[in-house]
């Protein structure tokens, strides 16, 4: 689904590209621009706040470069040095429209904002949402692509922009150090939501290769966990006995069990051992019937 979003099979719309410090979404943004430039009638306008023009154009195909209009908001976005091409305060419907009208012959205009985090730092989020919505509705722009660093904003701010978007792509680093994971949520015109999770990598020429799909990651994880596990599989000791082992075990005499030999050995007095001789005294009144007669109980 990432490829479908990149290739813009569904014309128009608002694509939100979310990234964090652990994986930058700018490469994916550039590969979108590169595919957009390959389409003949497309003109791309970039509001570049975070990368200079040289860095941004680096890697993009030079043959179509004249259809990429870079508006430099990088070197002086706040008007401190007085040589700014575009300041963050110019992010209004009128100013952006005049920028786009510089190419009146264009059939399809794509507006790229790199990144919206810069604008959100200097404008009220509600105003930003309104202007984005107005741009989308205005008709001058066919597609708006916006990069946002989600870890720089409060959740609610990003959430309100997500509501505007027709497609949301969230990038994160891949689990095994290879490639990256993109979570794509797409809303079709009928209002149906489609979600997909894919691992991808970006090649030298900014084309995107999809490696695998994890369409329902939650379910697959549960299934792998539920497979029957044999607890006796990897024991360090033996639970079963072979026949020889059983015989050896039965032969063994346990130390505190009386066998016949042991009993007789203990009861047969050996030579020279002591004896008790009892000779009744005259005073002894030994009663056979009641041997305990002399006890005073």
């Amino acid at each position: 689904m990432l490829l479908e979003v990149l290739q813009g099979t569904e014309a128009g719309g608002f694509i939100l590209l979310q990234d964090t410090v652990s994986y930058s979404g700018r490469h994916l943004l550039k590969s979108y621009i590169s595919t957009a430039l390959k389409r003949e009638e497309e003109v791309v306008h970039v509001l570049g706040f975070e990368a200079c023009e040289k860095e941004f154009r680096d890697g993009l195909d030079r043959t179509n470069a004249q259809r990429l209009h870079f508006h430099n908001a990088y070197s002086d976005p706040l008007g401190w040095t007085g040589n700014s091409a575009f300041t963050v305060h110019q992010f209004t419907l009128e100013d952006v429209s005049t920028l786009i009208k510089q190419t009146p012959q264009a059939k399809a205009v794509t507006l790229v904002i790199d990144s919206l985090s810069w604008i959100l730092r200097h404008h009220d989020p509600a105003a930003v949402c309104q202007r984005l919505q107005a741009l989308k509705k205005g008709g001058a722009v066919r597609t708006v692509i916006v990069l946002v660093h989600t870890d720089m904003h409060q959740r609610g701010t990003v959430g309100s922009i997500r509501h505007l978007a027709t497609s949301v792509v969230t990038v994160a680093p891949g689990t095994r150090g290879l490639g990256a994971v993109a979570k794509t949520t797409r809303r079709t015109k009928s209002g149906k939501l489609m979600q997909d999770e894919e691992t991808f990598s970006i090649n030298e020429d900014l084309s995107v290769t999809i490696h695998s799909k994890l369409s329902h990651p939650g379910h697959t994880h549960v299934n792998t966990d539920e497979t029957e596990v044999d607890p006796t599989a990897n024991l360090t000791f033996n639970l079963r006995l072979s026949d020889t082992e059983r015989q050896a075990k039965e032969k063994l005499a346990l130390p505190f069990v009386f066998s016949k030999e042991k009993k007789s050995a203990l009861l047969q007095p050996g030579p020279g051992s002591g004896r008790i001789l009892y000779e009744p005294d005259a005073n002894d009144d030994y009663d056979q019937e009641d041997p305990d007669d002399d006890l005073d109980i």
């Binding site: 652990s22 994986y23 930058s24 490469h27 860095e55 890697g59 970006i202 090649n203 030298e204």
Partner: peptide, 10 residues
């Protein structure tokens, strides 16, 4: 190293 222009990322 945060990859800038080359396709390699971080």
């Amino acid at each position: 190293w945060r990859g800038r222009c080359d396709g390699l990322q971080i």
